[in-house]
Design a protein around this nucleic acid. Structure first.
Length: 206
DNA sequence: GACCAGATGTACT
DNA sequence: GTACATCTGGTCT
């Protein structure tokens, strides 16, 4: 396994909350290569994050909290950093975000994709046996990690709820961070083109 | 690669 | 009540 060097994943401490309290674009970029762990009765799945998008709160037309919109659904985004914002969309999919900044500043980073580095069999089973493009989309990521409305609001800066993020290993040789426009937000006009999507490119499996 | 249907929660009139 | 969504999977080219 390529990323097994260093301290065993389950022994690594969760990344502290201060990491998430920084500017959202920095958090998004720095989340690439980090490892999201989900541990429950079924087992443990570890995912190395390879694609994320930043959503910049009340001034971002693509963001659920644009113009200060505050509803039961997006309430978690208004809370403190380091919590998971999981929402349901298109009538059949879940997407997961990590809340950034601080209470009252509703910004977040959408988790768009990652590579499974542990617990692949479980992730594949949750994806209905489909191994191809295993977690290469936000809804697939949620499905592989069994993230649903029930995980909305979970604190990823702590292991108590079984979902947390730890440091990954350094970028592999040939890997680089690619920036581009966000996906699926054409309705947001000019903001759809803002370079807020970050992706690890040059991976072996690309 | 492009195109499109699918299913229903959520926001807003 | 109505419009549309931070998408996926299947089909066709």
């Amino acid at each position: 396994m390529r990323f097994s060097a260093g301290r065993p994943l389950l022994r690594r401490a969760p990344i502290r909350r201060a990491f998430y309290e920084r500017p959202t674009e920095e958090v998004a970029r720095d989340l690439l290569g980090k490892i999201l762990l989900r541990s429950d009765g079924e087992g443990t799945v570890a995912v190395r994050l390879t694609e994320v998008e930043a959503y910049l709160g009340i001034d971002d037309p693509a963001c659920h909290t644009f113009r200060g919109r505050r509803t039961a659904r997006n309430e978690v985004m208004w809370g403190c950093a380091g919590h998971l914002y999981v929402y349901f969309t298109y009538g059949m999919h879940f997407c997961a975000n990590i809340v950034t900044r601080g209470a009252g500043v509703p910004e977040a980073v959408l988790l768009r994709g990652g590579d499974v580095i542990e617990g692949e069999a479980l992730a594949v089973a949750r994806r209905g046996g489909k191994r191809r493009g295993l977690l290469d989309g936000p809804a697939k990521l949620c499905q592989g990690l069994a993230l649903t409305r029930e995980q909305n609001g979970v604190d990823v800066a702590s292991r108590v709820d079984g979902i947390w993020i730890v440091d990954g290993d350094p970028l592999a040789p040939g890997e680089s961070i690619e920036t581009g426009p966000r996906v699926g937000v054409d309705y947001a006009g000019e903001a759809a083109g803002w370079p807020l999507r970050f992706r690890l490119s040059g991976r072996v499996r690309d």
